[in-house]
């Protein structure tokens, strides 16, 4: 039943952030990301930013985004996107059970377990 709850964990950019204007600005006048936008991206990526990091992140992330913005100038009509350096197709493996139980060994790396379960703060729906 929990798979049905997945979407609760995702978050989207609020509509006002979806209409960012910086790409419409000229490259000579790069527009920085706002602190709110950056905070939103950080939330989406599940990264807590300390207040002291925040300004630095906003500034550097803006520079990176402005830098990669130069791609917009490349003419790419009719160019197929390239997801992969190899022009190959997926190999398939036979449907065989090849793994054995390693739970106790593997859970030595786990910060918190009980009765074979991994523990997380209670998931509230």
């Amino acid at each position: 039943m929990d798979t049905t709850l997945h979407k609760a964990a995702g978050i989207i950019l609020p509509p006002d952030l979806l209409h960012l204007s910086h790409r419409q600005e000229s490259p000579e006048n790069p527009v920085s990301l706002t602190k709110e936008q950056v905070q939103h991206i950080a939330t989406l990526a599940r990264l807590q930013l300390e207040d002291r990091e925040s300004d630095d992140v906003v500034e550097k992330l803006s520079r990176i985004v402005d830098f990669v913005d130069q791609l917009q100038a490349a003419p790419t009509d009719d160019v197929l996107p390239m997801a992969h350096p190899l022009n190959m197709s997926q190999r398939l493996r036979a449907d065989e059970v090849s793994e054995t139980d390693q739970r106790d060994f593997v859970q030595q790396n786990a910060p918190s377990t009980e009765g074979g379960y991994y523990l997380v703060p209670k998931v509230i729906e």
Binding site: L18, A42, L61, V68, Q72, P81
Partner: peptide, 25 residues
């Protein structure tokens, strides 16, 4: 965060897809 941004709704085509096309070039 850069990666999260370029894949997010509204930016995917402008950044990620565009980069894949330039990669092809």
């Amino acid at each position: 965060m850069t990666g999260t941004y370029v894949l997010s709704a509204g930016y995917y085509d402008a950044y990620y897809l565009k980069a894949q096309k330039v990669r092809q070039l």
